[in-house]
Design a protein around this nucleic acid. Sequence first.
RNA 1: GGAGAAAUACCCAAGUCUGGUUGAAGGGAUCGGUCUUGAAAACCGACAGGUCGGGUAACCGGCGCGGGGGUUCAAAUCCCUCUUUCUCCGCCA
Length: 430
Amino acid sequence: MLDIKFVRENPEKVKENIKKKFQNNKLEFVDKVITLDKEYREIKVKADTLRNERNTISDNIGSLMREGKKEEGLALKEKVIKINDELSTLETEEENYENQIREIMYLIPNMVADDVPVGEDDSKNVEIEKIGDPIIPEYEIPYHADIMASFNGIDKESAAKVSGNGFYYLMGDIARLHSAVLSYARDFMIDKGFTYCIPPYMIRSDAVNGVMSFEEKEAMMYKIEGEDLYLIGTSEHSMIAKFKNQMLKECELPITMTSYSPCFRKEVGAHGIEERGVYRVHQFEKQEMIVICKPEDSESWYERMLNYTVELFRSLDIPVRKLVCCTGDLADLKYRSCDVEAWSPRQKTYFEVGSCSNLTDAQARRLGIRYKDENGNRVFAHTLNNTVLTPPRMLIAFLENNYNEDGSVNIPEVLRPYMGGKEKIEKKVC
RNA sequence: GGAGAAAUACCCAAGUCUGGUUGAAGGGAUCGGUCUUGAAAACCGACAGGUCGGGUAACCGGCGCGGGGGUUCAAAUCCCUCUUUCUCCGCCA
């Protein structure tokens, strides 16, 4: 969300930005919101003046009553009733304007960084760096669910009976691997100085509405029957809501947290649920990182966060690449964003495993996350978020990249302490 | 889950029954000063935040006593509702 004052003063810049994002249907919003804002302020002046009059006369009535001059007081009442009459119309208008302006401001996208490549959709995203050799082995890499099955590590059939499509039972070494990568990721981030956090997995509707649009809510969020509670789709929801309407102290910044949570998603819409594997499911787990910092620090945090993910994947022997999101693929709140993609030797291509974003002050302005600087000024903080990793999706990359011809899977050094010292997991035969 | 009490500014806290002179007493903290070699203490003084709007500015106005709504000429004060905290009971990993 932009500052209305910025829009007022820089309508052309805002329009340019909208064009860069290929959202020409929103171009008219700029002039519209500026007009609405102007009319709103005119009405506010009128209403404020009337309220002022009312307050003054009411005070007078009070004084007269105390002095016992009832008649005079009663006469004044008539006047105020008239004012209130006039006011009620104005106040309805005021509210209408406020709502309209807010709705439009939500739709006008955040300014994107100058160096974000211009492009219409994700096909125009730009690879900036490959880290690790994307090896294509001589032998064939099986589908991830089949690898899991070869260790008796997954049962989707039972899950489908018990919970429906989009769920899984993970078992044995695979389940342990799932916990192991999460624990490893948690410790990895703690070592980087992040504070570990386990947030609520259910949040109230006002928290939900604060962090996503109505459409997103409908497509993603599970509601608890009979309660004003929703299952979170990512810990980011709880984590951001935690700071809503907070005035932070400058000395608290940067706030760097790594949160764990299960994530629940309806996945209504575009892709739907995948039948066989664990790539897209209703329930998964995720380790996330968020940073709330001063505006001048957000760009360097962005780089750092992105590189943490890369470093983490590399420590698990998984080749990755950084793919910069082009303007058209950038969500409206984002200033810049970069996907981290893992190499899939089976598909011989990279696939998304995480996404790092700098939202500058757009999210903070929407949610009221501020801090007091050394001069006592209240400043909107910058917010950033990035995936650390999400098993089971991460397991796909892990299993494929550490798969041996004999069907065993290597456990990279860093993960062994979490796997009881095992160097590899082997096929179960029965 | 049941019953009761409460939420006031950076913190504590008065005001609520009985609506108006209360944007809010008092204390603490903070800042400045006197005193002191320095500090503490004591004393004196300052400071009421925030947000929206008007104005070149000085300044002026609206909102604002947990959130939302209502009654009233007028609400911290009365009514409804939600949230949170505390106490007791019940249940329970």
